[in-house]
Amino acid sequence: MAWLAQRGRWLSYSVGMTITEQIHQAILKVPVTAWTAVIEPGGEIRDGAWVAELSGDCLEGWPKGMRLIVRKERPHPGTQLRITDADGLRLTCFATNTTVMPIAALELRHRQRARAEDRIRAARATGLRNLPLHDTAQNRIWLEVVQLALDLLAWMPMLALTGETRRWEPRRLRFRLRSAATQIVTTARRRYLRFARHWPWTGVITDALARLEALPNLG
């Protein structure tokens, strides 16, 4: 946090915080009127969830300009509460230095960062669970290759896919899109890639290729 807030960096951050005893006591003192309803990406109110900003002694010792945002929500049925929860509500907390957004919008932005954890999980499935080679230099090359693959996994769905298909996991993408049977056909001195009509996701593949072809050439 101190590194992020150093003078001249001009970085905006949103970092999850552990709820210490001091922070927990500060949360318990937040008045009812200070809690704001949590919002969803479409602007609608999320039922059973609220957010508030902490101040006072719990900010001492932290970088200047840091804001501490806490969220409370009714847990899902069967969820086991933690010792830091209160009144039957799940408590989470994060820090940010963004000042131009209301706390409900800041909480939504931070919650949407969960896709970062999804990328980490995809990285492990793609090849970062174990380093397969013995030499350090070889493993560095392996990491570079895996990172290139992760970049493709991140950008391809954003540029070529729509709707639910954008959220497909790497294993599902590999089976449905990259395992399709194809045939290279040459006609009129041009080569075409013909996909099997019976493959359930042929339409998804051809639509994705058309979107990629329509992108402007930035080379």
Rank of each mutant, 00 (worst) to 15 (best):
P170T: 08
T187G: 15
R166V: 06
M158K: 05
S179D: 07
L173N: 07
L153I: 03
L177P: 01
E164C: 12
A181D: 08
A188H: 06
L153E: 11
I184M: 14
F175H: 05
R174S: 12
M156S: 13
R191F: 09
V185I: 13
T162W: 11
L161A: 02
E164V: 11
P170R: 00
T165H: 12
T165A: 10
A180H: 14
R191Y: 11
W168N: 05
L173F: 09
T165K: 02
Q183R: 08
S179I: 04
A160Y: 06
F175S: 09
A160F: 06
M156Q: 14
L173K: 04
R174Y: 12
P170H: 02
W168Q: 03
L153A: 02
L161Q: 00
Y192S: 02
R174A: 10
R191G: 10
R172T: 10
A188S: 07
W168R: 01
R172H: 04
E169G: 03
P157R: 05
R194E: 11
A188Y: 05
T187N: 14
P170Y: 02
A180G: 11
R171G: 14
L153D: 06
W168F: 07
R176C: 03
P170L: 00
P157T: 00
W168H: 10
L161S: 05
L177S: 00
W168D: 10
R167N: 09
R172L: 07
T165G: 04
L193I: 05
P157F: 04
L177D: 00
R194K: 13
T162L: 03
L161E: 03
Y192Q: 00
T187E: 15
R167Q: 11
W168M: 05
P157C: 02
P157G: 03
T182N: 09
G163S: 01
R166N: 09
A188R: 03
T162E: 14
L153C: 07
W168P: 08
R172G: 02
W168K: 04
T162G: 07
M158S: 07
T186D: 12
P157V: 01
R178P: 07
L177T: 02
W155P: 01
T186H: 09
A181P: 04
G163V: 05
L153T: 07
R167E: 12
R191A: 07
R176M: 04
M156R: 08
Y192C: 04
W155S: 04
T182D: 11
A160K: 02
R171L: 15
R171A: 15
L177W: 00
L159P: 07
A180T: 14
S179V: 00
A188G: 05
L159C: 01
T165S: 10
S179F: 10
A188L: 12
P157Y: 07
R190D: 15
Q183V: 00
L177V: 02
L159T: 00
A160V: 01
Y192F: 09
G163L: 01
R194Y: 13
R174I: 07
L193Y: 00
W155Y: 01
R194L: 14
R166S: 03
M158I: 02
I184W: 14
L161I: 02
L161H: 01
R176L: 05
M158D: 08
V185K: 10
A181K: 06
T162S: 08
L153M: 10
R194V: 14
L159K: 05
E164I: 12
R178L: 13
T182Y: 13
L177R: 01
T187F: 15
M158A: 09
